[in-house]
Simulated scan of single mutants.
Amino acid sequence: MQINGLDLPGALTRAIAERRWRRPPLDVLRRVFRESPVAVHLYDLAAMRAANRRWLEEKDPAYFGHLDDKKPPGDIDPARSLLLGILGPHMPFALDYRVASDRPRVLYLHSGGDRWITVAGDVEQLLARLQLDEHPRSR
């Protein structure tokens, strides 16, 4: 499955199909994202498509961050990324395809609004860290 010409990782499409892609407990979110989320929403496929159509048209430089050699990446390219959800107003998290198109890393926009931070090396790692990597019946 593709959105904006980018392939969604199979682990993500499986998690969505199996209804594992849902809001984890707040303490888990805080530990993973190192933020205090206020209005968490993990996009389903329809919302992902809509959000990413708008993402390609985004013009506000505040959303793009700044390259940070000391704590990469710092920035993001809307044409090489897909939004997965939000942690709150102006706090999206996304797949970043710039390093590896077959295993995009996961970034989030720091609440300060000027820096994208790596939260997981790939979707599988994100699902594990959010405790969404198992089918609900097996818990």
Rank of each mutant, 00 (worst) to 15 (best):
Y108C: 12
L56P: 01
D102A: 14
M1F: 04
R139C: 10
A128L: 13
R129C: 02
V119T: 10
E18Y: 05
V119Y: 03
A100W: 06
V28C: 07
N52F: 07
P25C: 03
L42V: 08
Y43N: 05
E35S: 12
A100Y: 09
D122M: 06
A51F: 11
P37G: 03
P25D: 13
N52A: 11
H41Q: 11
A39E: 09
P24M: 05
A120P: 05
R49L: 05
R20Q: 15
R14H: 11
N4Q: 15
P25R: 11
A11M: 05
L83H: 08
E35V: 05
D102Y: 10
Y97L: 04
L67F: 14
K59R: 15
S81W: 01
P24C: 04
Q131W: 01
L45E: 11
R23H: 01
Y43L: 09
S111P: 03
Y43K: 02
M91N: 09
D122K: 09
D96E: 13
L84I: 07
L84C: 12
R54N: 06
D96A: 13
A120I: 05
E35Q: 13
H41F: 04
Q131L: 09
Q125K: 08
L109N: 04
A17D: 13
A128T: 15
R19A: 12
R22C: 08
W116R: 05
A100D: 15
M91V: 02
W116G: 04
A17N: 13
P89C: 02
G121K: 09
L132Y: 10
L87K: 15
Y97A: 10
D68N: 15
R103P: 02
K70C: 02
L56G: 10
I117H: 03
M1E: 07
R31W: 03
H90S: 15
A62K: 14
G113S: 03
L132V: 09
D75Y: 04
H135M: 03
L8G: 07
L130V: 04
A39V: 00
L6P: 09
F93R: 06
L42K: 06
P72R: 13
A50I: 00
L83D: 07
D133K: 01
D44M: 05
G65P: 02
A11K: 07
A47M: 09
P78L: 00
L107D: 08
A39G: 09
S36Y: 06
D27K: 06
M48Q: 10
D69I: 10
L26W: 02
Y97V: 11
I16L: 14
D7H: 12
H90D: 15
D77T: 06
V119E: 06
L126Y: 06
Q131R: 13
S101M: 13
G121D: 14
D27A: 11
A100R: 12
G112D: 12
D102N: 10
D75A: 12
V119L: 03
G88Q: 11
N52K: 11
Q131F: 01
Y63F: 15
K70Y: 10
R103C: 12
I76E: 01
D7A: 15
Y63T: 01
V38E: 14
L127N: 04
R34I: 05
D96P: 14
V123A: 11
A39D: 13
P136E: 05
R22D: 04
R23M: 13
L26V: 12
G74W: 00
A120H: 00
R34S: 14
I3W: 07
L45D: 00
